[in-house]
Computed example of a mutant assay.
Amino acid sequence: MQPSIIEMIYSQRQEIIDRWKEEIRHFSDNEFTRSLPAEVYNETNVEFVRLIIDTLELEQSEAKEKLRQFAERFINTGWPLSYFTQGMQAFRRVLLETMTSQETINSKKVFETFYEVESWIDGIINQLVDEYSGSWENTLHLQKLALKELSAPLIPVFEKISVMPLIGTIDTERAKLIMENLLEGIIEHRSQVVLIDITGVPVVDTMVAHHIIQASEAVRLVGAECILVGIRPEIAQTIVNLGIDLGKFPTRSTLRKGIETGLELTQRKIVNISSDDFR
């Protein structure tokens, strides 16, 4: 961009910011912005418009990185794309009005200057749109992975004995799904013993333990017995350190030991048969 235009923008910086803040009031009255504290909203406006102006003095790669960091931060906090695109359109109007009112533009270069401003603003808008598009694509990808992770089937392994293997993190939403699948599966398979296998759960904290306890109590309410298996040493230590009480139902270190306990609870057991028994 022409040095004279950059100089004008910086010399009129505060006026441009003030006029821009006044301009965006026309589209800022929506459900999202109304939910924000006034201080946060105003600080974001100032940060956004200052970042736009500062990109003029940055190298292209550095400007893109600054915009990427800004967009990523506000995408994650729920700011709508429309706020930024409308904000950029408002900034374009304010900037062109300021330049023409100051008679900064040489009449012979008016179209050239407007083209430079348009290219600059459009470049920022395009990057913001790309950042939002990439964020949504990543979100959809993570959601697909989460759906696979959330699947918690109750698998019948013996008559009256079923296993629910859990893999990955457990939050409130997933705990609800686990509970539903658990109770429906018990009725469907007529299970008397259910083994909840947490071998694949990386972290067991107070919340996870609470969900597991709730699940075991629900199992008892429908007339079945719950056994927690897959208690690794580090998980056992964490449970003890947190003071979590898992004494209401049996626990076993491995799935095999859990199945053996389940067989005992259903009056069965695994026995070794020698070759002589087949003679």
Rank of each mutant, 00 (worst) to 15 (best):
Q89E: 09
L56Q: 06
T77A: 06
M88W: 02
V94Y: 12
L81G: 03
K64M: 09
S101F: 12
Y83A: 06
G78I: 02
E72R: 08
T98D: 12
K109N: 06
E57H: 15
E59I: 06
S101K: 14
T77V: 12
S82D: 08
S82K: 10
E62N: 07
R92V: 01
L67E: 00
Q89R: 12
F70H: 00
F91S: 04
E72F: 09
M99P: 02
E62W: 08
E72Q: 09
T104H: 14
E59S: 04
W79Q: 04
T104S: 14
L67W: 00
N76D: 08
T77P: 01
T77D: 03
L58N: 01
L81Q: 07
R93V: 10
L56A: 06
M88R: 05
K64P: 02
T55G: 10
G87E: 06
L58C: 05
E116F: 07
L95A: 07
A90C: 12
T100C: 11
T100H: 15
E97A: 09
G78L: 06
T55N: 07
L81K: 03
L56W: 01
L95D: 04
M99H: 08
W79L: 13
R68M: 05
T104V: 02
Q86S: 12
F74I: 09
V110G: 14
E72V: 07
T104A: 13
E62R: 10
T85S: 00
K66H: 09
K66C: 05
V110Q: 15
W79F: 13
T113F: 06
Q69F: 01
Q102W: 13
E57K: 14
E57V: 03
F74Q: 02
V94W: 09
K64I: 04
M88L: 14
F114M: 15
Q60W: 13
K64Q: 10
A63G: 02
K109E: 01
V94M: 13
N106H: 11
T85E: 00
R92A: 03
A71Y: 00
F84Y: 07
E62F: 06
R92N: 03
T85A: 00
K108T: 09
Q86R: 12
E57C: 09
S107F: 08
P80K: 08
E103L: 07
L58H: 03
E57M: 13
F111T: 03
R73A: 11
M99Y: 06
T77Q: 03
L67C: 00
I75R: 00
L56R: 05
E59L: 09
E97D: 08
R92W: 04
E112T: 03
T100K: 15
T55Y: 05
N106G: 10
S107A: 14
A90W: 09
P80S: 07
R93H: 13
F74L: 07
I105S: 11
Q89I: 14
I105Y: 04
Q89F: 12
E116C: 07
P80N: 07
